[in-house]
């Protein structure tokens, strides 16, 4: 580790990737479990994007489903109606969604929207998207949806390959996240999520960061959306609704821990397990999500990862105290530098 200090901060990303790469080896017989695991990867990647948006730049984008749906519908329609090859179609769709994310962010920044107002506007965008897909029935088949078989790169036919491709996307998103947070941009993001005015007065171009982060997040989210369309074999507007995408992503991020690297992954795992438990209740799952979300906002804002970290630090500092004796006062909060991306900063509401 000392020989390659540059890469040491990537170890958690690498470890996560390796651990998740082993999953298909254990569940080979069960297509169902692999499906759930693949969906977990997508959820985690959405949450990484949402973490950048909401956790780090305080942009409450309640249109994750729209961004994913733009990737999905964009890529499918470009192949089906414009005759593009699937890879090019995905690239174009991702570019469109990236532009959309940047545009929404830019509008919010220029008009000086607060957190909640961004939430309301993007929620409206989600409703518009639903109606747009229904209205363009001629192309989208409305609520009936589109069977995407043969229109994509063939993820539906090969689930194990699909798992690894989506894992690669997740690992890429985590690596980009970690790279940003380790650079001076990470410090700048921390500063602006603390206090935007102070950040601006330090010379940080808050507007540029917000728009840039929104574009980056939209890019990853829409890429996953496009791959989901192919993998799932079928798309319909309700698959990209607020209830289907945004609410779960919000829960995942809050469960796992905002402003942490692994929060989205841990949150996705916990969420997937909880989801499997409440699934038999049918329509009541929505109610369960709602109650869960309220509970999370009230008492568990910091998430599992932050909680575990604090616990670990307490264990470490107490063993240190035991070894060194009382002469050395251990820092109660642990090493402040290690808290850079996950300190209990001002909550972004």
């Amino acid at each position: 580790m000392n020989a390659r200090p540059v890469l040491s901060h990537m170890l958690p990303v690498l470890g996560t990737g390796i651990a998740l790469a082993a999953v298909p080896l254990f569940v080979r017989e069960s297509g169902y479990v692999l499906r759930i695991a693949t969906f977990l990867l997508m959820l985690a990647t959405y949450a990484v994007g949402f973490n950048l948006l909401f956790g780090h730049t305080r942009q409450l984008f309640l249109c994750i489903g729209v961004l994913a749906g733009t990737g999905a519908y964009g890529s499918v329609l470009l192949v089906r109606n414009a005759g593009l090859n699937p890879v090019a179609a995905i690239a174009v769709a991702v570019a469109i969604a990236t532009g959309l994310g940047a545009f929404l962010s830019y509008v919010g920044v220029r008009r000086g929207f607060g957190v909640l107002f961004v939430g309301i506007v993007t929620l409206a965008v989600s409703l518009i998207f639903q109606n747009l897909v229904l209205g363009l029935r001629k192309y989208t088949n409305g609520e009936t949806g589109i069977v995407t078989q043969g229109l994509g790169v063939g993820l539906a036919e090969n689930p194990v390959q699909a798992y690894y491709i989506l894992l690669a996307v997740l690992v890429a998103a985590l690596a980009v996240y970690q790279e940003i947070m380790g650079s001076r941009h990470g410090l700048a993001l921390h500063a602006l999520s603390d206090d935007e005015v102070s950040a601006e007065l330090s010379g940080i171009d808050v507007a540029r960061y917000k728009v840039g982060v929104a574009a980056l997040a939209a890019g990853f989210i829409s890429l996953v959306g496009a791959l989901f369309a192919d993998w799932n074999g079928f798309i319909s507007p309700s698959l990209f609704s607020v209830g289907h995408v945004d609410i779960p992503v919000l829960i995942v991020l809050l469960l796992g821990g905002m402003r942490t690297l692994l929060g989205p992954v841990v949150g996705a795992i916990v969420f997937t397990i909880v989801d499997a438990i409440v699934r038999p209740f049918g329509q009541l799952t929505v109610l369960a999500y709602g109650v869960l979300l309220v509970a999370l906002f009230l008492v568990f804002r910091e998430g599992t990862v932050t909680l575990l970290q604090r616990g670990w630090e307490m264990v470490q500092s107490s063993t240190q105290r035991g070894q060194v004796g009382r002469g050395v006062a251990a820092d109660e909060d642990g090493d402040p530098l290690s808290q850079r991306t996950n300190s209990r900063a001002k909550s972004p509401y």
């Binding site: 001076r184 410090l187 921390h190 500063a191 603390d194 102070s198 007065l201 330090s202 001002k346």
Partner: peptide
């Protein structure tokens, strides 16, 4: 500013690092 708009969660060194952001 009069309110000394520091970043209270960051260390002294990190605050200075941010000062040299430009």
């Amino acid at each position: 500013a009069a309110e000394r708009e520091l970043f209270p969660q960051l260390t002294v060194l990190e605050n200075l690092e941010l000062g040299a952001y430009c």
